[in-house]
Structures are given as C-alpha cells and as structure tokens.
Nucleic acid binder design. Structure first.
Lengths: 232, 232
DNA sequence: CGACGATTTGAATAGGATCAATGGGAGTGG
DNA sequence: CCACTCCCATTGATCCTATTCAAATCGTCG
C-alpha cells in the first residue's frame, strides 16, 4: 500500500483517532486492490468477511429477490460500506459491485472486531459512522414512503445542483439506469419524470441537466431537511 | 422507579454489561413515566433530548412531510428508539406516539453520551444495538423496493404466524390502519390485498387471521431470510 | 460498418390512491 | 337497555401513477 493512500485512509473519521499501533496492525492485515468497472465485490447472504473502504471510484450497493433488483445506495470516496454486518458477524444484507474502476481497501472483519475491542477510540468512531449510516437509510426510507417518483427526482436534482455549486446546471453522477433504480423507478419512468419536470425548467441533455427555474422546481419538490441531506 | 422495572431494564442487552455505578447514575437521571394511548412523545426535527426505552405498551415511530404521513416502525417492549439521534446529538428524524398505554424510560441524551464515553462496555453494547437497528431498516427498505403491496402483506402474515407459534391462525398486532401504513399502503388497499390473498387460504375476521393453505401462501410470498426477520 | 447497450417514446396494463358511501362495533349519554 | 355518535373497516367507482412490452433512436466501441 502506498504511503499516500495510507495517510488518506488515516484521515477518515473512522480511523483518525485510533491508536497508531492498532491502525498499523489493521492496515497490515488489510488488502488494497483495484477493481475494474462492473466487478461484483460481495453477494448478499455471504458471511461478512471484510469491511470495505472505497478510496477511489464508486461502488453500488444493491439487493435482489425473486428476479427483481434494486440499487440501495452508492458509495463514493472516501466511504465505508457493510459495517453493520461486520460488527454483528452476520451475513451481508446487500451485494456490491463497482460502477467505475475503483480502489478499495478490504479489512478482514475479524481484525475490525479485534480492533474494536482493543481500541476504545476506534469503537466510538465506529458508533458515529454507524449512526450516520443508520440515519441515511432512515432518510432514504422516508423519501420512498412519503414522496412520489417525480418528487424524489426533483429533490435529487436540487441536491445535486446544490452539491455542485449552484451554477444553474448539474451533471448526473450515474447513468440514468442506475439513477432510476436508486430512486426506485424504472428507466422508462425516469425518462417520463424528466418530461414531467420540463415545465419546471428542467432541461436534460445526456448527463447534463440545466435548471432554469429553481424557484418553481423547489415549490414542486418541497425539500425537507429531515429527508434530504446536503452532501452528495 | 420500581426495583422490578430496574432489574428488567438492567437485563436489556444495552445495559447488561454496563458498570454498576454507571448504570445507577444513568437510571438516577432517567425518568420513568406512563403515558396514555395516543400521546405524542417526540416530534421529528426536535433536538434529541432523550433516549427512549419502551418497557410496556407500544410506540409507533412515524414521519410526515407535505401533508402525508407514514408509519416507520413499531417499538415493543423491551426496545429502544431514537438511539442514533441521541448519539449524534442531532435532531430526531422520526416522531413517536404511544399506540397503547405505555411505560417508557426516558434517559437524558447527555447522560447517555457521558455513559458512552465513560463506559466501554456500554459503548460496545450500543454499537450492537445500533447495528441491529440499521440492519432492520435496511431489511425494511428492501421489502419496499423489491416487493408489491400484496407480497409485503403475505410475508408479514407469515412472519406473524411464525412468531405466534404456527398454529394456523394469528392475531394482527395493530389495527388495520396502522398495519397498512407500516406496510406502505392505504387502509383501502390493505382491505383489497386481504381480498387478493383469499384464494391463498387467508381468511380475515377482525384482527383474527386464519391461514388454511400456508404452502400456497408461501409460494406467493417467497419469503427471504435477507428481508424477513424471524422475530416479531 | 455493424453490433450492442443506453435512452427515449408509445401503447396497453397493472398496481395503488382517492373519493364516496355503507356497514359494524365500541363507547357515551339518556 | 337503547339510541346515538364516532371511528374503523370494507366496498365500489374512478383516477392517477408506474410497470411492462414494443419499437425507434442514438452513440459508442470493436
């Protein structure tokens, strides 16, 4: 592992306050690998062998049952995933695949649990990370139970717009198929949802979206700080 | 607080391995109250003043936005709620109301965080509890993204049936209005979903449901251990 | 160039929501 | 004990949303 990567990982909230020796031991046990686009990293139902940290690229968490599949979340650098399964020593509830060439840190889950027991500071950092993840899923769940598809899209656009600097235009971070699944709809329906938003100043050209009437879009979307997060 | 209550709370995974003094201090700071049915305990958006533990009765977690409301979860004895908000010292993402006469322990969130810092054992118990809550929401979210309303109901019936001893019949634990919201549908639609399940041996009489053809109901429901939990 | 995948659009269908009306207890007051 | 009321639950009718199936378009890549 490169020193630069190591120091970047060390900067993560999760590892930052950890004892130096414990951190070194954890990293020594860890694997640092680069995966091509479309590689499946884990499969739901498997035992949680590793905690994953996305250092570069992008990872999609998804779930499937009964022939259907849904994107549950996207993990961007620097973010962890599948922490709860590792801590409970249980099976993964979600699968993961890269959706770009990605560099990923894989820490054997037994080592994570050991460090968790030995290092109080690490244990507390984990609580914070876990609580954040929990709240993120709750927000997502509220989004789906309380809004229609068009509203979800509108709020998502506003969020991307905000994160990308409020320039009046934004770039969709994923292809439309993935975005549709993330928002809980079919690609066809996403297309139509974009159509529905045209009267509200939403113009789409590939991954580029321009918002020419943010006021009316916001009126439609009714963003709510208890559902929508400010960060990407 | 009665000694019996205290010892019951002490038995909770969350408190059981905690240092005796720390536990005593926490309980001394806590309030133990009985609330009538329909009392709203917390409102989403408010700062997390207390961690709640339901000792008796039942509490509904719900969320609202833009005139719509949805039940997010039901908390039964002995269960905690709103832990993540307390740990992050953030606002509640959900509101809570009693749906039966309920005895509830309220621990000031500052005390929880203090105990969390002082007591490693408690900190670790919190991680475990939090990870469980996280996984529960993920399951719930999968349920909603991957299944139709009828499938969700069918799986829910199978779950209740299993929890209640597989006797061929079961009692719905909440009124149908609440059950509908919990399953993400309207009461009317729940009625119709029950109708749809009649050919699969589902007979409804008030809160009593008999399952006369569990095999075919299961075929329809396709329960999945990565979505459906065994416990009530 | 030709194949493939992503996206869009159209038409038909299914799944759910809304609105309205009715039947049925549970609880209240007489 | 009965009449009354209120709320829950069910049912019917209709509307709207979203999915499915099909087909056309557009780019990208080999």
């Amino acid at each position: 592992m490169r020193a630069a990567d190591l120091s970047e990982i060390r900067k993560l909230d999760l590892f930052q306050s950890m004892d130096e020796d414990h951190f070194a031991a954890l990293m020594k046990a860890a694997y640092f690998q680069t995966f091509p686009t479309g590689m499946q990293l884990i499969t739901e139902g498997d035992m949680a062998d590793f905690l994953f940290v996305v250092v570069e690229g992008c990872v999609e968490l998804f779930a499937a049952t009964n022939g259907r599949e849904a994107t549950m979340a996207m993990v961007k650098p620097v973010g962890t995933f599948i922490l709860a399964a590792v801590l409970k020593d249980a099976v993964y509830l979600m699968s993961a695949r890269t959706c770009a060439k990605s560099r990923v840190l894989m820490i054997p889950s037994q080592n994570v649990r050991n460090a968790f027991v030995k290092d109080d500071s690490f244990a507390r950092a984990i609580v914070s990370e876990l609580a954040s993840c929990y709240r993120a899923v709750v927000r997502d769940h509220k989004d789906h139970k309380l809004r229609t598809a068009v509203e979800r899209l509108a709020n998502r656009l506003i969020k991307y717009h905000t994160c990308q600097g409020e320039t009046g235009s934004l770039t969709l971070p994923y292809d439309k198929k993935t975005l549709a699944s993330l928002l809980g709809m079919t690609p066809e329906n996403l297309s139509r949802a974009f159509g529905t938003l045209k009267p509200y100043g939403v113009e789409v050209d590939g991954a580029k979206v321009t918002l020419s009437d943010i006021k009316s879009l916001t009126t439609l979307a009714k963003p709510n700080p208890l559902i929508d997060v400010r960060k990407a």
